[in-house]
Amino acid sequence: MPKVASKIGSIGQQHTITVLVENRPGVLARVAGLFARRGYNVDSLAVSITDDPTISRMTVVASGDEQTLDQISKQLTKLIDVIRVADYTDAPMMERELALIKVDADTTKRGEVMQLVDIFRAKIIDISETTFTIEVTGDVEKINAIERMLEPYGIREMVRTGRIALIRGARTAIQT
């Protein structure tokens, strides 16, 4: 093992980190600020309340080598409002992301786009003379795939929620 910790910003594996925090004003700023000032890379960040209204759950996707990720977990744990940090990367987990995609779909393209939507088990949730808005849920690869398939038709606008994750089986984030 190298004696010296790795440099900030070193590239490595993507990790999915679940952070349970006190549902208080400013807690998102504390977490986001920590990533910014310590130079950690965040690929996505999803936040919402949980079944317990006093707890919010953040799912952070961050990349870096093993040591950097270890530091991220430790530094997050140090924040007073953070209740629990769990790195799910090596655990069996379910990951999902939701995307809304507004794609060009005039009368000549509609049939083909609808077929793609079917294949991906996505949904058309809005329609205009020239566009569809598609809702799709799935893991990252699926979202990337439908994006790639829709690109030739002309994506006007797209939004992704960022990844969320739960561990498989009866275990919970508190217990990992």
Binding site: M1, P2, K3, V4, A5, Q67, D70, Q71, K74, Q75, T77, K78
Partner: peptide, 21 residues
């Protein structure tokens, strides 16, 4: 301290491996 083994005692877990492993 290239040739040394090392022991690190600290109350802050984040200090372990932050700079030197």
């Amino acid at each position: 301290a290239v040739g040394a083994k090392s022991i690190h005692i600290d109350i802050d877990p984040a200090e372990i491996g932050k700079v030197y492993i």
